[in-house]
């Protein structure tokens, strides 16, 4: 069965096939245990148990002390090609806005300060670029997922 996941390295297609109780991905093998965990045997000889849970479209996987978030792309779903939208990570209040539309910013520059959970959080530019949208002013409340700012990142 073919599945597509979105990872930090880009979208990845994974095809797993079942033979008897054993799932195969290339040379890697997996068995679903009675308690819902997966017994995984990698081609390099490494063995371990993975615990998984799906929240929304995301598969959370714990494997060998690491936790992974893998967003499953539904077959036929359109790719949301969002650019440099900076999104509120949680509900809060905008304390300060340091940029305006058209302004050039450097990587690491503070664009906005949010207050959430009684702490101030700085929204930083991850790359240099130009601000193309400012959607909130100081004092305004933002909801989780609100697009705060938009920017076009410079070509690397």
């Amino acid at each position: 069965m073919l599945h597509q996941f979105r990872t930090a390295q880009g979208d990845i297609e994974v095809t797993v096939a079942k033979q008897g109780d054993v799932w195969h991905l290339g040379e890697h093998q997996a068995i679903v245990e009675d308690d819902g965990r997966l017994s995984i045997h990698l081609s390099n000889g490494m063995k371990g148990y993975a615990t998984t849970a799906k929240v929304g479209d995301v598969w959370w996987v714990h494997f060998e002390g690491h936790t992974f978030c893998l967003e499953r792309i539904e077959p036929g779903a359109s790719q949301s090609g969002d650019g440099g939208g900076l999104i509120a990570p949680m509900p809060g209040k905008v304390l300060e806005v340091f940029v305006e539309i058209g302004q050039s910013v450097e990587a690491g520059e503070t664009l906005m300060v949010l207050e959430a959970m009684k702490m101030e959080h700085r929204i930083l530019a991850s790359n240099s670029g130009e601000i193309t949208g400012v959607h909130f002013a100081a004092g305004e409340q933002v909801q989780q997922g609100s697009v705060l700012l938009e920017m076009v990142e410079d070509e690397a």
Partner: peptide, 29 residues
């Protein structure tokens, strides 16, 4: 290993027995 775990979980329908609660599943990851 993680990608395989996710793909096998999806193929096996494990999410139908996931212990996550109703409110949680509305959130997008």
């Amino acid at each position: 290993g993680a990608l395989m775990a996710a793909a096998v979980s999806e193929s096996s329908g494990l999410h139908h027995q996931s212990p996550s609660n109703a409110q949680g599943t509305e959130q997008s990851g």
